[in-house]
Design a protein around this nucleic acid. Structure first.
Lengths: 241, 241
DNA sequence: ACCTGAACACCGTTCAAGT
DNA sequence: ACCTGAACACCGTTCAAGT
């Protein structure tokens, strides 16, 4: 016993031999992302990760301090890949929308990581640094005071994250909002949910499938219009004649 | 061996004896919520839960099919406690705000459960049934078509959930947005984050602490105003003269 | 420096058995 | 019906040892 255990190619202890790629933080995170993307967060364990890398579980600890570090490293990797279409010359409304789409795109391309992306405060802070510059650039042009710019930016990010989380945790594409929900509404005692009933019955078959793309656009529209309104009010207050 | 193990009062196997409260789904969820509220999600295990109840770990499985069921049961319990101040006669804007505050209040009162609340799709669906009636009632008065009402409601809920998640994962009260973030912005190479720098430098000491209450109001304001705008546009489109 | 083996203190859950 | 004990197949991480 000792050698040739399973598919691991590595034989002895000690340094990697010439020709073998050494273990690095990057290689570890790559392998971890493959596991999470392919099989979900539940499949990620230090032991499984080590097995995929052909390495002893403890070797990982020389490059990352623990499992938490692996997970937040993953979030960092994913967010650092955020790219926006250049939208320099466009009006701020378009630039805000471009940011929102890029942010949603990141979460959507790694649905199994969505929960960590959205909840990892450190990663969000990282995202502000690396990705939110265009958002702040756009919002500066509204003329709102700095404090309100920050709050508007946060509101937009909160919406995008809330939306993306819902999107990530639902079966691919649109999901049927009509059938199950309407059935449950209709079995409600007496009618203690009259408005819900009216709205969803009016939707009927036509609106049975929820369209995430259209829903995102409506939400974005509401936010951008809302920002326009408070910006206009602020300006009117400054020179009220 | 056999009897008197630790603090568990229960002695023999079989049915609970007279005078002992029997194990129920409700008692299990109560105990689980106490653990999560007090020590966080990481402290919740079937074995720990059983110990707190003075019961064999396996006994729980007779009332709930597994750990996942315990967690989503928890989310259900918490959401079923959502209560709104009655706001029947008020304008729809006020009623939308009341709903948002109630929803935020639920998440805020169980910060350690925030992640599950926000991500548990089944619970969200449950929340729609039990709690969103007032929101739909309010939004009906905007005159928007049913499909847009659903999307506006979802956008509001997405914002509230995104906001609440950020709030729950940050140290109590406001957190300092200025010090750490500004320090990192200022160490950025060259100046590839000019807008961020301008905004956060203008905030300075005054805005160093993030005020969650004020931030929530601004976000709500943006959303309500935005809904007003798209509702007005829809009405204008219907009778364009 | 970098990697390993064995061990520790846990998990959730199945299954057969008790009353 | 309701509860239990032992066992199975896992975890993350510490620690001392190897090269």
């Amino acid at each position: 016993m000792g050698n040739g255990k399973g598919e691991a190619r590595r034989r002895g202890a000690g340094r990697p031999r010439a020709g073998q790629e050494p273990l690095t933080r990057e290689r570890i995170l790559d392998a971890a992302l493959r596991i999470v993307d392919g099989e979900g967060m539940g499949a990620l364990s230090m032991r499984r990760l080590a097995a995929d890398l052909g390495v002893n579980p403890m070797s990982i600890y020389h490059h990352l301090p623990g499992k938490d570090a692996v997970v937040s490293g993953l979030v960092g990797v994913v967010f650092s890949g955020m790219r926006m279409l250049p939208s320099e010359g466009l009006p701020w409304q378009e630039r805000v929308r471009a940011y929102a789409h890029a942010h949603r795109g990141i979460v959507r391309s790694h649905p199994n990581l969505a929960l960590q992306i959205v909840s990892n405060a450190a990663a969000v802070s990282e995202a502000v640094l690396s990705g939110a510059e265009p958002l702040y650039g756009a919002l500066e042009e509204t003329g709102l005071p700095p404090k309100t710019i920050v709050r508007a930016a946060d509101s937009l990010v909160d919406f995008v994250q809330g939306f993306s989380l819902g999107e990530a945790s639902n079966p691919s594409g649109g999901f049927d909002i009509g059938s199950e929900l309407l059935a449950r509404i209709e079995t409600q005692p007496a009618d203690n949910v009259p408005a819900l009933r009216r709205v969803f019955e009016a939707l009927g078959e036509e609106g049975a499938r929820y369209d995430f793309d259209a829903g995102f656009e409506v939400g974005l529209d509401i936010l951008v219009r809302g920002i326009e309104v408070i910006a206009a009010e602020g300006a009117r207050r400054e020179r009220p004649g």
